[in-house]
Design a protein around this nucleic acid. Structure first.
Lengths: 148, 148
DNA sequence: ATGGATGCAAACTGTTTGCACTACT
DNA sequence: AGTAGTGCAAACAGTTTGCATCCAT
């Protein structure tokens, strides 16, 4: 179970987001948010949908997609595309920006994800922004290693 | 049209690859390879298939997929997953390893791709390899900026 | 009570697969 | 001649969409 103060903070963020956008405070949105913050690794939509079903709270896949989209926009989750065609998500609050080392098996299936954070990325980013006179909103850095 | 010496080199690489793997030297493989090396930007499978059809040489989508897989394994093309569920490809020979700045419109649709290369990535990679005692085979670095 | 959100199923898109036919070796 | 490779269409997986129903406001 996520720590109570974290739970409070993320609900608060969702409250504000929902209020600002004039959306409704549905059970689904809050339950899915809490559920995600109880997970400790990256997950795909199917996995989340299945685990929600296994828990007491079952929702449709459409709602999972909708809610993830909303949480993404609210900055409460991050979305990743590793080197296959499935999107992966992870909670993002109290979980500072980071990069990934993806370890796959021989077939390219994701086996393990190691997170790290390196300040040199921000330096590259700053240089790019200055050099091209643009604003970079985000980045993805993935290193790949194959399991022997 | 790609420079003749480049054409010669890439055909040579494919020749050797095909010979080593005991595969056949089909028209399709060589024509698609040449075609890709005439393109100057990233492309997805659909685009390549369409452009091939528009040119004199039409092949099936299955063959496009098969051939890209083969060229990928031969090291003649690179494959990317930007922040959507389509795979993008690009020629890789005489086109040194590089990273990407993806500029999208408000809807997240890819508008422009700027390539760059920064040695700091290799430094990060080397540190990771040493620290975790693994071999990193590859990496993807994408910076994202939205068109105003 | 109103209409935004959900659930379900159908549609869609990118990719993979199976099988008859073609053409390299 | 033998069989890897191709073309086509059907199957698949992940995601999106349409519409009837439900429930937060």
């Amino acid at each position: 179970m996520a720590k109570p103060e974290i739970l409070k903070s993320i609900k608060d963020i969702l409250d504000k987001y929902v209020a600002k956008k004039n959306l409704r405070k549905t059970q689904e949105r809050y339950r899915i948010l809490e559920f995600i913050y109880d997970l400790d690794k990256h997950f795909d939509v199917d996995e989340l949908h299945r685990k929600l079903k296994e828990s007491d709270f079952s929702v449709s896949k459409a709602t999972v997609y909708n809610t993830l989209e909303l949480l993404l926009d609210a900055g409460l989750v991050r979305k990743h595309h590793f080197s296959n065609n499935t999107a992966y998500y992870e909670k993002s609050y109290f979980n500072k920006a980071h990069d990934h080392l993806i370890i796959t098996d021989r077939n390219g299936k994701v086996e393990q994800i190691i997170e790290f954070c390196d300040p040199r990325i921000d330096a590259i980013r700053a240089d790019l922004e200055q050099h091209l006179n643009i604003h970079i909103s985000d980045h993805d850095l993935y290193f790949y290693a194959k399991k022997i």
